[in-house]
Design a protein around this nucleic acid. Structure first.
Lengths: 358, 358
DNA sequence: TCATCAATTGTTATCGATACCATATTGTCG
DNA sequence: CGACAATATGGTATCGATAACAATTGATGA
């Protein structure tokens, strides 16, 4: 049957005509399909000469392996699933990049999803991912719906939670304490003489890392005897640069004598600083500002922003590494916690010796 | 066979024990597997009561549909593949987000890959994607290896090229002319009285959109009789904020009387402006700077950056929309070109009336 | 020289869902 | 009231690769 025999609207597009299968490649070469299958794997026993002939045929015919058939048979999907809150946030896209890089040459492919900081969306996505039977799954944070937890348990695959230290880990963890990191920043700045601390973050508890940073701030300010922190909540996470600007205005209206403002992320810190600059205030002379996450912008902008550097890329790489390890060692791995580093990066925006060159 | 019967190292993890299949759910409910399969699809004919019983059983047993089996049988993978140069660039992650959103509730899932601006990497990824038999594929740009083109043709699936207007489109296109967009920016600024134009971009031709912007700049500057543009190439794409800063220093060393510098993206423009500020130059009083892409940062920073706004999100949405359309209408769609909008956004960084409030 | 073994290749069953067709059941209309 | 349609459900083959096992070949060594 050629294209001429079928009605026009059912005609295949050029090239679509023959859906090649392994069996056809095999026939073309004069071997069995099994041998062709073997030729595609590096560990299989096929003579070099046969493999070469097969690969030439594959090339000539334009055959492309069909992994969905293969994975059904081998019961290995070749997928790793990863869920991040947002892909438009460079911290998380760095993590995604780390995962991708770690998966290179492992024969595993990344299935990426965005939860929009919502546990319900996460639940949906987990189900959607599990329908593809991933061999492992990487999540952001430790806050999941009950059904999500049940599905994950039932799936029987290694799970890595990242970016936090969940109280009740599912399996493996690769992350750090957001609360302690923020605490360290508070202590460092207090050590420089700052006393009147403000904080800018999002409103809801959807962003668990944000909440942890906030409580780390709150707790530490009180521990240092600096009274209750001056907290402004602004916008649904992730809070934007613009919201950072609006938030610092509210904060300074309410507590005009604030000396330093810590922000849930560098993005809001940047927005805050720009807004201050626009209103004629000098950072850090009139008000000091610090962020969290060490985004590229913070080392470039003027003034440069004091922040907490987080190893976003490393979180991804290590999370994928833990999964790979678990897959190799026969899934019998214990539930480990891998701590990733963070450090305070002091820059111009909190420099006590006044303003930078302007 | 219980867990006790198997050697310890082969024991399944808790919960993994029974890999549930549809047949088991069916037996549990007392219907056929086929009926269970139907219950999972909204268009299939199953009585409401049966569907309800089945879904209760699914819930009770914790069954999760296996799409890899389903797609083999139905010959529909449920995947859409998309390749972007980088996920760490917010322009492209916006496009990815647009695709994801457009795919919501279509039963299609996004398989995302990063080409790192490399046609070779793209070729590899195209093959990796095709092995999953996606129902459509979205590419960035129109520059592909010959083998990539062959594979795509053979795959017989709709292809959408985005972010450019390729000279030789494979199938559908959703994008705009980077060259004309840059040209428009040059003309607009020339209309404001600028005469001595500089340009900052990456070195190689890997980033085809970058090259197109550059040639649009070059051509237009000459057409306007403003002599050859002052071009600086700096770094392998994507060029960073920091490289933007280094580039403008080189450019001003070489051509100190330059009046306005156009940058391949807002990121390098931002870096350039910050570096100028640090060196005591005021933007735009001493030097005007414009970017491309209208990143969030450009409307927030100080001075705000003149740029070309591109509908990144819309490119993704429309590209996915074109694919969906092609899939519905039986793949017989013609090869269309969908133009997406762009516009000049004039801001402080090129304001001829001197510096903004500082 | 013959048994043994490693390397290579083939055969068959199977992974788990769905397409396709058949069948049972209920309802409808002249 | 009988024939036919519409709805609901079941049975079987099948998607395309791979696991598991079998078979063939040539080489090796006692």
């Amino acid at each position: 049957m050629t294209n001429e025999d079928v009605p026009k609207d059912k005609r295949l597009k050029p090239g679509e005509a023959q859906k090649l299968t392994m069996a056809e490649v095999a026939k073309y070469v004069g071997v069995s399909a099994m041998t062709v299958s073997r030729a595609f794997r590096q560990d299989a026993s096929v003579s070099e000469e046969t493999r070469k002939r097969i690969m030439e045929a594959v090339d000539a015919l334009g055959y492309v392996l069909d992994l969905s058939a293969g994975s059904l048979s081998s019961r290995r999907s070749g997928f790793i699933a990863a869920l991040v809150p947002s892909i438009n946030n460079s911290n998380f896209s760095d993590t995604a990049r780390g995962i991708t890089d770690a998966l290179e040459n492992t024969g595993l492919q990344l299935l990426l999803g965005y939860t929009d900081y919502s546990a319900e969306k996460e639940e949906e996505l987990i189900e959607a991912m599990l329908r593809r039977r991933p061999e492992g799954i990487i999540l952001t944070g430790g806050s999941h719906t009950a059904r999500a937890r049940r599905m994950l348990a039932k799936a029987g695959i290694p799970v890595v939670e990242t970016w936090e230290l969940p109280e009740d880990p599912i399996n493996q963890v690769v992350g750090f304490s957001n609360s302690e990191a923020m605490s360290l920043l508070v202590r460092t700045l207090a050590g420089q003489g700052y006393r009147k601390f403000g904080y800018i973050g999002g409103t809801t508890a959807r962003d668990t890392r944000g909440s942890q940073r906030r409580s780390g701030f709150q707790k530490t300010v009180e521990e240092l005897g600096l009274g209750p922190g001056r907290m402004i909540s602004f916008g649904v996470p992730p809070i934007t640069m613009e919201q950072g600007g609006q938030a610092i205005v509210s904060l300074l209206e309410r507590w005009p004598d604030t000396e330093v403002v810590l922000c849930v992320s560098d993005l809001s810190a940047f927005g805050a600083i720009m807004e201050c600059t626009r209103r004629g205030m000098k950072v850090p002379r009139d008000i000091a500002v610090a962020g969290f996450g060490d985004y590229e912008i913070s080392s470039i902008c003027h003034p440069r922003i004091t922040t907490i550097n987080v190893d976003c890329y490393g979180i991804g790489r290590q999370a994928a590494g833990r999964l790979l390890h678990a897959l190799q060692s026969g899934e019998a791995t214990g539930d480990e916690i891998t701590l990733t580093g963070y450090r305070v990066v002091l820059r111009e925006s909190t420099d006590r010796n006044g303003t930078p060159t302007a």
